[in-house]
Simulated scan of single mutants.
Amino acid sequence: MFEEGQLYSPVVKGPDGAVTVQLTSEHPGVGDPDYRTRRNAIAALALAYRPGDPIPHVDYTDEEHNVWRTVSVELARKHRTYACTEFLESAARLNLPTDRIPQLDEVSAALSPLTGFRYAPAAGLVPLRDFFASFADSTFHSTQYIRHHSAPFYTPEPDAVHEIIGHANQLASPRFADLYRLVGAATTRLETDAALKFLSNVFWFTLEFGVLREGGEVRAYGTGLLSSYGEIEEFRHADLEPLDIAAMGTMRYDITRYQPVLFCAESMSHVEDMLGRFFATMDDDTPLRLAVRGAA
């Protein structure tokens, strides 16, 4: 998970070693002491993890599994209508369980033979540079908690539904996985925060919220759309702009609202070609070069 940390739930560790996830006052689980205890415990497991260790298993409750079942069934139905073929085919190959929340080592075991990607646990927000750079090593940092049972179709923060149903299904496609690795390699070349922000914006409007034309329809390939019960119904009402690296890299967006402007590719090959060239060649001077070119 990534993006502006103040909009998500910070994880803090006290002097006594106690781990606390700080939920906002608007979070559906903020008034549920049992949910807050669960969030703290799951975050503590991830904080204790060290690369090379076995991924910690979460002993999910029946209530948590039921949230996964509810959302999985509804999203699968919507994917058949709104998702692009590349996503549908990769999801079929990965074949995630729909009756229970999979453990992250299960996701890795299914994903690795397909594209080489594996999952690592995250307690919460991963610093943007670290999050993206890990893609170069075919690693995706994922949270393990799930949204509050009172609002199964809503979450104010990326949870297991977004990280697994969204990203793992996308990463099961060699075509998308290669783009992620290019993002990781680009991140290791970047030194300035401005360039990193530009890169993250392009990632946001494509691999998170990208759409493309297919069979005369506009279909989604971005994980933010395909893991959101509400947003997946709304994206066809957005203003569609042509795929434009300079525009995507500089456009402001509000992650708390449905996206009013989306960038539409002409095909999956268009996504691969344009993003592949950009990610493969981006450096700290790229945003300025694009700005000068656009002003000429």
Rank of each mutant, 00 (worst) to 15 (best):
F135Y: 15
S150H: 08
S72C: 13
E4A: 13
R38M: 11
P51E: 04
N169G: 10
F235A: 02
V73G: 11
V271L: 04
R118M: 10
H79E: 00
E233P: 00
I232Q: 08
E272L: 08
S9M: 10
A136S: 14
A168M: 03
D254G: 05
E233N: 12
L262S: 05
D178V: 07
L225A: 04
P56L: 08
E74H: 13
L125F: 14
Y154W: 08
R147T: 09
D283H: 06
P242R: 07
E266T: 13
D34Q: 15
V73P: 00
V202F: 07
M268H: 11
V292I: 14
R277F: 10
S173D: 05
L207Y: 07
L226G: 01
T61H: 09
Y60N: 04
R277P: 00
N201Q: 13
R277W: 05
E163L: 08
P51D: 07
A48Q: 12
P287Y: 02
G14R: 14
A168Q: 04
Q144A: 10
A91G: 10
R147P: 02
V202Q: 02
V73F: 11
L111C: 04
E214A: 08
G276S: 05
D159H: 00
T188Q: 14
D32E: 06
M268L: 13
A280Y: 01
A151T: 14
I101V: 15
R181F: 05
R189F: 08
D99K: 10
E86F: 01
D62Y: 02
Y154N: 08
I42H: 03
F205N: 00
A186N: 02
V58L: 03
A120H: 12
T188G: 02
G184N: 06
L111H: 01
R293L: 13
V21N: 01
E217Y: 11
G29Y: 08
A76K: 13
